[in-house]
Design a protein around this nucleic acid. Structure first.
Length: 294
DNA sequence: AACGCATCCAACCGCCCCACA
DNA sequence: ATGTGGGGCGGTTGGATGCGT
């Protein structure tokens, strides 16, 4: 139970964006006295801020060693990899990225990645993530070749992943993930193992046997050389059903002319799971591959 | 120039965990 | 065993900014 004086103090506290002088006061105080008690420090430092607010400001902005600016390609890859393993444990992910904060990673993920999956954008007008004040809006052109940059990916000097044309078969058949070759089957299993997917799966108390992720026959595998030299991405790529068994239990039952998976096993029942709410768009696939491709 | 919409991200909020009395 | 407070975490909000018309 909070005391009246505590409530009064909280009432008097400032909120919102930190001013430069507040930053300076907090920085100077911690430099001199160190961190000893977040709730008491603001008063001692002469700040009209809550301890929580001070802690957050320090941890996410003022702390020495904080990196500002775009995430590097390597950092993005690390985030994706760790998110696969850890889910939304942003602080755990941040530990592996020196200078990056959990808040920053969380924002990045929410903005650039989750929304990419969530949005099922028209398959001929794919918009790449836009970076505020740092780069151009990226559009995929009529030939479905992405142009521009994604975060700081363009700064690597390496040929853009987007410069490489992909057939839909190639996208579905192979994704390089840190040296691992992903088959279609692995791809589906990987997505099923997605932390949120399993969470929602548990919430719905579904039997795991409801989902059959096996692919009775393997689709043709194209290596990177093959699909990078295979001409341009077709305007309306359609994955050949010949690549899959016609088994009714096939999770990748169909691939329609709109480049969408019509049904992925029982996944359509994951109502509240954004990833599964929408079928994979061309954009989502390209985006993931761009980030994972070496 | 002005307006509306979209996007980003710093900051806040509520909850949880843990140490300690 | 229980209550309390500090710290940490993930989810969400809203102000700032960019962009298109």
């Amino acid at each position: 139970m909070r005391s009246i004086s505590q409530n009064y103090q909280n009432f008097c506290l400032r909120k919102g964006t930190w001013r430069a002088d507040e930053d300076q006061m907090l920085r100077a105080y911690i430099k001199r006295y160190g961190i000893w008690n977040w709730n008491e420090m603001p008063k001692a430092a002469g700040l009209l801020r809550s301890g929580k607010s001070c802690r957050l400001r320090w941890m996410n902005y003022l702390r020495p060693g904080i990196k500002r600016g775009n995430l590097s390609k390597e950092e993005v890859q690390t985030i994706i990899k760790l998110h696969k393993m850890l889910g939304n444990r942003w602080s755990a992910i941040a530990e592996k990225l020196p200078g990056r904060t959990d808040n920053e990673i969380k924002n990045f993920w929410n903005t650039y990645l989750r929304n990419r999956f969530k949005n099922n954008i028209s398959n001929t007008a794919v918009q790449a993530p836009k970076l505020q004040g740092t780069g151009p809006v990226n559009d995929i052109n009529e030939n479905q070749h992405m142009e521009g940059n994604v975060g700081s990916l363009e700064s690597s000097g390496e040929p853009s992943f987007r410069d490489q044309p992909f057939s839909m078969e190639a996208q579905m058949c192979k994704v390089e993930d840190y040296g691992e070759t992903y088959t279609d089957e692995m791809w589906v299993q990987e997505l099923l193992s997605y932390p949120n997917a399993s969470h929602n799966f548990e919430c719905k108390q579904r039997n795991s046997s409801d989902i059959d992720v096996s692919l009775p026959t393997s689709p043709n595998i194209l290596n990177s050389e093959e699909y990078s030299s295979n001409g341009t991405l077709p305007m309306s790529p359609i994955i050949s059903t010949d690549n899959f068994s016609s088994s009714s239990s096939n999770p990748v039952k169909d691939f329609n002319e709109n480049q969408h998976m019509v049904e992925i096993g029982s996944l359509e029942s994951f109502g509240e799971l954004p990833l599964w709410d929408h079928p994979f768009s061309m954009e989502a696939q390209l985006w993931v591959q761009e980030l994972l491709y070496n």
